[in-house]
């Protein structure tokens, strides 16, 4: 089940020249995460109302940038940062009632090249940290 979610995270082909984050989401993320970033229950983790919680956690931010679907995507550091920021603005706006710290190319570059061997264990640890401060995203991915 896990490989399915990871494989699907960036399953896409093609790229429009000078694509913006909306186009990058469509081409690199939407194939698995869905038009509304809703994911597939039990198979593909949702980004809507979920990514924002990771982005407001120190370990969560590192986790998001290191999951295989994001880290191995064909997007540059700047475009990966832009598409993640776009997803939060598009699907998670107002979820926490405060502004979410944005990703930048430097933060992406510093994290995405560190391989994550145990995705499930890392996610469980991150969710524990998030749960300490409020509702946490689903754990089963």
């Amino acid at each position: 089940m896990l490989p399915i979610a990871l494989l699907g995270a960036t399953a896409a082909v093609g790229a429009a020249a000078q694509a913006g984050p909306a186009e990058d989401y469509a081409l690199h993320c939407m194939g698995c995460h869905g038009v509304n970033a809703q994911g597939v229950p039990g198979k593909v983790p949702p980004l809507a109302h979920s990514l924002v919680r990771f982005m407001n956690s120190v370990e969560g931010r590192r986790y998001v940038l290191r999951v295989p679907g994001a880290a191995n995507s064909m997007l540059s550091d700047a475009r990966l940062a832009a598409v993640l920021n776009w997803v939060v603005a598009q699907f998670d706006a107002g979820d926490l009632g405060r502004a979410t710290p944005q990703f930048g190319a430097q933060e992406v570059a510093a994290n995405r090249h560190r391989p994550m061997a145990g995705v499930l264990a890392t996610r469980a640890a991150v969710l524990k940290e998030i749960a300490a401060g409020g509702p946490a995203p689903a754990a089963e991915y």
């Binding site: 699907g8 399953a11 082909v13 081409l27 939407m30 194939g31 869905g34 198979k43 593909v44």
Partner: peptide, 8 residues
Amino acid sequence: SVVSWIGT
């Protein structure tokens, strides 16, 4: 299918 391949 609920997941798909995307192209242009």
